[in-house]
């Protein structure tokens, strides 16, 4: 009687090995490794300074890691080492196959151009040159993220925080990415607004079969969205596994502390 290997032999989308990010002598994250499969949502939880954001920045190719490898399965099926790709190819990947939803909409949106232009930009960036079609896609996506289509020509600076986050999501998803990074997507939002956003993200991820890496310090958000969790502290992954297992049966002292620190309502 032997343990069975993986149920399906579909290869992972993202393979991370020994990833270390350093800022001079200071370590952002150390020796992080994991695999991410298509359609899977990985939550990265931990408190401020735990290395979540360093990890996210390296994963999304924003900063070059000091050590380790990030390999990604391109649409043609080949596994490419992220930092072996040319800068052009890497940036192309970020504009098309990947999306990044920032905590602060200011980092992810152009606040001085209209909502429609914000959504359309990624299409134009990959060569769309038909105004009518770009606008059509923008309208379609505003609808999907529950933004009133009448607001298409308004600037996002006039939007509420929740709308800005939903606009960021539309802006990212318009190119049909396969992998989306989200950094505290519900941070700073009112609870009722959070719920709506979480529900939207859940639905989109499931409907589109997206893979996502979501960084959050909110364990409730992690439970709702993530299939698997990695708990980080001091730049290292202290525990990882199935989301509900990590939250309901935490093994590491730090995870136990985190879980027991949640306020009950």
């Amino acid at each position: 009687m032997s343990a069975l290997p993986l149920l399906d032999e579909e290869p992972p989308l993202l393979v991370v090995e020994g990833l270390t990010v350093a800022y001079g002598a200071r370590v952002g994250c150390r020796d992080v490794g994991f695999e991410l499969w298509p359609g899977e949502v990985l939550g990265i939880v931990g408190e401020s300074g735990s290395g979540k954001t360093s990890l996210l920045n390296a994963l999304s190719a924003k900063i070059e890691p000091a050590a380790g490898r990030i390999r990604y399965r391109l649409r043609d099926g080949t596994m490419a080492d992220l930092f072996d790709l040319s800068e052009a190819a890497r940036r192309q990947l970020l504009r098309t196959d990947w999306g990044v939803v920032h905590q602060n909409p200011r980092d992810g949106l152009r606040l001085t151009v209209s909502a429609g232009a914000n959504v359309g930009e990624r299409l134009m960036a990959i060569g769309a040159r038909h105004y009518g079609e770009i606008r059509g896609s923008a309208l379609d996506w505003l609808g999907k993220v529950e933004i009133d289509r009448d607001r298409i020509d308004d600037r996002p600076s006039s939007f509420s925080g929740g709308m800005q986050q939903r606009l960021q999501i539309a802006r990212n998803l318009v190119t049909n990415p396969r992998l989306v990074f989200m950094d505290e997507p519900t941070g700073g939002l009112d609870v009722s607004v959070q719920a709506r956003l979480l529900d939207l993200i859940r639905g989109l991820v499931a409907d589109l079969g997206l893979s996502a890496i979501i960084v959050t310090h909110d364990l409730a958000v992690a439970r709702l969205l993530a299939h698997r969790l990695m708990v980080m502290r001091g730049g290292e992954v202290v525990e990882s596994g199935l989301t509900d297992q990590v939250l309901d049966d935490p093994q590491h002292p730090y995870t136990q502390l985190l879980v027991s620190s949640i306020l009950q309502v």
Binding site: L4, L6, L7, H227, Q245
Partner: peptide
């Protein structure tokens, strides 16, 4: 699990899902 047997004690998160 179908025609297979899986030891939950050894299963990966994906297998459990």
């Amino acid at each position: 699990h179908g025609a297979a047997r899986i030891d939950l004690a050894q299963a990966s998160p994906r297998q459990i899902i």
